[in-house]
């Protein structure tokens, strides 16, 4: 089966990618003298003895290739090591941080696709109507706003006023689904809107442009000449063809998504993967950094496999290889 071969090949390449990325992160870290790291860990007024002690405890005094071997050995056994500071297993930290991040990503992507594609379709089928004009302006606004500005704005004009009036459903911080779907959504709604805003603008513009082009194609004229309803012509024939490039754009955007997620998590204090990894970078917490790098790389690899599969599913001219 073509699909099985494709999956096996892509998963193997994915593993190589993850290995390369984590190795890169590992050696980049040691591009600096280990004493800088240890000094940070040991605190401000540490004596040289304390620092040497820290270095020894963390195994940073061993030859770098030995450390790397250790690292790889742990890695294939699914052990990502322990935080330099709390000694907490990185695996545990990942397990805690994954739910908020996945919540942000999945919800944000769904909202931006629904809004972006929906508004794009309405705009394209009524070009130069008031709806189209207003949405064109909003698209420009959305494109020109950095993610953190949108986030802070939502806190300022939505969250704070509502809270002041005792409406606490919309909230910051993270609440797991176990506390109830409603509670979870209340915590996620602002992060979702923030992440979705910029991308929804991009996808509105993309969908509108693609659909306008598609609706001018000869096969759309054929569809009309067949006596199909305008609705069927637009959706079954027009939108169907316009969506293929939208899906390939999605592949590109998902790869770059984690940058935006970091900002959203920090603004709303969700404590997800992004927020934790930023802290880890500030404190040179190597095992944590590498753990997150691996998860991020795996995320990109998996997302791209899904997108490529979807693409082949949407367009019979595309062969998965």
């Amino acid at each position: 089966m073509a699909i099985a071969g494709f999956l096996i090949r892509r998963i193997l390449t994915g593993i190589v990618v993850v290995w390369l990325v984590s190795t890169g992160a590992f050696f980049l870290f040691f591009a600096r003298p280990v004493a800088t790291v240890a000094r940070q860990l040991a605190g401000h007024a540490a004596t040289p003895q304390v620092i040497a002690e820290v270095i020894r405890n963390l195994g940073l005094d061993q030859p770098i290739m030995v450390q790397y071997w250790h690292f790889l050995d742990n890695l294939v056994h699914g052990n990502l090591g322990y935080s330099y500071f709390t000694q907490e297993p990185v695996n545990t930290m990942l397990k805690q941080d994954l739910p908020p991040t996945i919540s942000v990503v999945v919800g944000g992507v769904i909202i931006w696709l629904v809004v972006g594609i929906g508004v794009g379709i309405i705009s394209a089928t009524r070009p130069r109507s008031w709806f189209d004009r207003v949405s064109n302006i909003l698209v420009l606004v959305g494109l020109s706003m950095p993610v953190f500005v949108i986030g802070e704005l939502l806190i300022l004009v939505v969250f704070l006023p509502l809270n002041r009036h005792g409406i606490t459903w919309i909230n910051t911080g993270y609440a797991g689904i176990s506390q109830g779907i409603g509670v979870w959504m209340g915590h996620m709604i602002l992060p979702w809107i923030t992440l979705a805003a910029v991308y929804a603008a991009v996808y509105t513009r993309l969908t509108r442009g693609q659909l306008l082009d598609t609706l001018g194609e000869d096969y759309i004229r054929t569809a009309r000449a067949k006596g199909l309803s305008e609705r069927r012509v637009t959706f079954r024939h027009g939108v169907r063809a316009a969506l293929t490039p939208v899906v390939s754009q999605l592949g590109v955007d998902v790869g770059q998504l984690l940058g935006g997620v970091v900002v959203v998590e920090s603004v709303f204090g969700l404590g997800g993967l992004g927020q934790t990894s930023v802290q880890a970078i500030y404190t040179d917490n190597l095992p944590v950094i590498i753990g997150f790098v691996i998860v991020a790389a795996a995320f990109v690899v998996i997302a791209n496999i899904i997108v490529d599969l979807t693409y082949a599913l949407l367009d019979p001219r595309v062969r998965i290889t």
Binding site: Y219, R221, T222, A225, A241, T244
Partner: peptide, 21 residues
């Protein structure tokens, strides 16, 4: 109800006149 049922059309370019998907 006229289009395709009472009057039908054959277009110039068969390469682009059928839906590719």
């Amino acid at each position: 109800h006229i289009r395709g049922e009472r009057i039908s059309v054959i277009f110039q370019d068969p390469l682009t006149s059928l839906h590719p998907l």
